Amino acid sequence: MATDRIVVLAGGVGGAKFVRGLRTLARRTSSPAAITVVANTGDDLWLAGLRVTPDLDSLMYALAGVNDDERGWGRAGESLRVSAELTAYGVGWPWFTLGDLDLGTHIARSALLKEGLPLSAVVERLTARWPLGVRLLPATDQEVETHVVTAEGELHFEEWWVRTRAAVPALGFVQHGVETATAAPGVREAIMEADVVLVAPSNPVVSIGTILGIPGIRAALRETSAPVVGVSPVIGGSVVRGMGDVCLTAIGVATDAGAVALHYGARPAAGLLDGWLVDDVDAATVDPLTAAGIAARAVPLWMTDDETTARMAAAALSLARSVRE
């Protein structure tokens, strides 16, 4: 662990919780691991003239210790005066409430982007404010936005997720601009030079799936000598957080820990995974997954606090070491 270079693919609140636990584990060593987090940018959007990056911000705020733990997103100690004014002017989405402190982040980001800085450089500028203990990278500098295909047309993922609460049936997901995108500077290099790559328990379809869709990233994961170990976002047939089950259903994948692992696929069969952690309640999936070429273990996966999540991260690293050996 002390010399490991760890790359984590992550998105949103679940990814942020996992990375905080991994950082807690790393800080206990005399030579802490170098952790690079590659974040989903498919949820990003322009709103009221501002570039909003939900997953990057969730990770940044959580690692900085300034996130709102009660709501699970945004900044702690928020006020909503500016959002109320925007609504009064009929600007933006009234159901997509941005706090005043959060808006400060979006204004700063948008100003730097309009000065010509790429998103990766902007993230570096913004994260320099806090000692995060990890390097945070966007999956790409290009604008790749996830849209949901419905019978009534396409909706931006955030509109479908927040306004409709995923109640409108999804027929599929489209990442606009993904074909011409490239991995952000440092992403492929981090993966290729890693000792371990971890796939956080984030939404497999619109978070991890979007990262994997960026040209060059999936290839790097197949080429790296590092073991790739994922953590199931499904426990006992239910998603840990959010409405990821609706996303899985839309692409024909069962809400099941084993099914998600097989969706990612085994690396020996041109898939993604060398190893997969499932919760104890899903222990019956371990043998079938191992037979399919994915080394699996069952351990407690509920991320109730940083300490329990650190133990989960330790189990993931232990599995990675056994795969590597």
Rank of each mutant, 00 (worst) to 15 (best):
M1Y: 09
I6A: 08
R27L: 14
S31C: 07
N40M: 11
G42W: 03
L47K: 04
L47E: 12
D55H: 11
D57S: 10
S58A: 15
L59W: 08
L59K: 10
L63E: 12
A64E: 11
V66D: 03
N67L: 11
D69C: 04
E70W: 15
A76C: 06
A76F: 09
E78V: 02
R81D: 15
S83K: 08
E85L: 15
F96W: 11
T97F: 01
L103D: 03
G104K: 00
H106L: 07
S110N: 01
L112H: 03
L113I: 10
K114L: 10
V123I: 15
A128M: 08
R129N: 09
G133T: 09
R135N: 12
T140M: 11
D141A: 00
L155R: 07
F157L: 08
W161P: 03
W161Q: 13
V178Q: 03
V178T: 02
A183K: 07
A184G: 04
G186S: 07
I191N: 11
A194W: 09
V196M: 15
P201S: 08
N203F: 05
V206F: 12
T210R: 10
I214F: 06
I217V: 15
R222K: 12
P227W: 00
V231N: 01
P233K: 14
G242Q: 06
V246K: 14
T249Q: 14
A250W: 13
G252E: 01
A257L: 09
A259F: 04
V260I: 12
P268Q: 05
L272S: 03
D280Q: 15
D282G: 06
A296D: 04
W302V: 15
D305I: 00
D306H: 08
E307V: 10
A313I: 04
A316T: 02
